[in-house]
Simulated scan of single mutants.
Amino acid sequence: MASKSTAGATSDRPVPTTMTTNLHPAVAAYLADSAAMGLRPYVDLAPADARTQFASVMAARLGADHQPRPMAEVVDRTAAVDGRDIPLRLYRPSTSTANRPVMPTVVFFHGGGWVIGDLDTHDALCRRIADGLPAVVVAVDYCRAPEAPFPAPVEDAAAATRWVAAHVAELGGDPDALVVAGDSAGAAMATVVARRARDTGTPRLAAQLLLYPVTDLTMSHASYVEMGTGYGLTAETMAWFIDHYAGPVEDPDASPMAAEDLAGLPAAVVTTADLDPLRDEGDAYARRLADAGVPTVHHRHGGLIHAYALMETVPIAMEAIADDLSALRGVLAA
């Protein structure tokens, strides 16, 4: 399913085993279903219409009879910080562990190229993370481009994380097990929040979970050519996202790969998908983390595509995210 590498200060950097580039049959069927929906390319839509289409697709994928994964509590909150109100959604799972009566807290930033996606599109994933670790999950509804371009979403992410850290006991979380996490563009913001926390000394983070992260806005890696069409996310769509986000590619808060020093960052679980245009930049970032001495687990999942963590109806994709959460449990237990 996936090649796995674990690295730390005294280990070799993770270099994933060469994986097959064959599309898993279940993922091929998923893509065929997407094509049958007759969706318009995001590049042909205004951002507001793109958001509506994405939300509709996510709801349709789950089906009219979908029953959300049960939680002990799901409640919308607001983080009043730095003169603004940032919407949050708190997930408290029904599960717990005897050896960890106080659960880790995961601050989660959704993907969507900084333009689409919201709390609802990633609700199922947040529930899965909360139940699978188990952990208290706080999803952040950060502002989006182009109405709020770079660096506004990053500032929301950092401010929300500081708020969660200050209220972690009230939220029922473990102050010694605070995690930043995200998928795609959200993972990019998690890397920035982690680096800023290292530089300022607060909040103290235990780990970062980076699901198929955006790390390099130059779009210069070979996987953009190899996987840039035919696998869901396209190179053209990524260019559309980046154009709306307007992040300068040389700024490490926009392109985490541009950061000069990654030493001292919290332990990381970095995941990539073999058939994802973002594959190579995610692989490269995992190598850089390990080279800097950061304890790093890198999963490169064969046969999968970008956004596999959102593919609730595809068993092989859910096996992959379960594998990723298992790695994070191991990191937190270390």
Rank of each mutant, 00 (worst) to 15 (best):
A2R: 04
S3G: 12
K4V: 14
K4N: 13
S11C: 15
S11P: 11
T20E: 11
N22W: 14
A28T: 11
Y30C: 11
S34F: 12
A36Q: 12
R40H: 06
P41L: 03
P41C: 07
P41I: 03
A48G: 07
D49W: 01
S56Y: 06
S56H: 07
S56V: 13
M58L: 14
L62D: 04
A64L: 01
A64R: 00
A64N: 04
A64C: 02
D65Q: 08
Q67V: 15
Q67C: 10
P68F: 00
P70A: 03
M71A: 05
V74T: 06
V74S: 01
V75D: 13
T78S: 14
A79I: 11
A79V: 10
A80E: 15
A80N: 09
D82A: 10
G83K: 05
R92D: 03
R92C: 03
M103C: 09
M103T: 12
M103E: 10
F108L: 13
G111Q: 07
G113L: 10
I116N: 00
D118Y: 06
T121Q: 04
T121F: 09
H122M: 10
A124D: 15
C126A: 03
C126D: 04
R127D: 09
R128L: 15
D131K: 06
L133P: 00
P134W: 01
A135R: 00
V138G: 02
V140N: 10
Y142V: 08
Y142E: 04
C143T: 15
A145G: 10
P149W: 03
T161M: 06
A165S: 02
H167V: 04
V168M: 01
L171D: 08
G173P: 07
D176E: 13
G182F: 00
G182N: 06
D183E: 10
G186L: 03
A188W: 07
M189S: 02
V193H: 02
R196Q: 14
A197V: 08
T200E: 14
G201Q: 12
G201W: 11
G201H: 05
R204A: 14
L210E: 00
L210H: 05
L210A: 04
D216L: 02
L217P: 05
T218C: 11
M219L: 15
M219T: 12
G228A: 08
Y231A: 12
Y231I: 15
G232F: 09
T234E: 13
E236I: 11
T237R: 07
W240R: 08
P248V: 07
V249C: 10
D253F: 04
D253M: 04
S255Q: 04
E260S: 14
D261Y: 05
D261V: 11
G264I: 09
G264E: 09
A268V: 10
A268L: 03
V270W: 01
T271M: 08
T272H: 08
T272S: 05
A273C: 14
D274S: 14
G282V: 00
G282T: 00
A284I: 06
L289N: 05
A290R: 02
V294W: 01
T296F: 02
H298S: 13
H301M: 13
G303N: 05
L304E: 06
A307T: 11
E312G: 11
E312Q: 07
V314Q: 10
E319Q: 15
D323H: 02
L325T: 11
L325C: 13
S326T: 15
V331P: 05
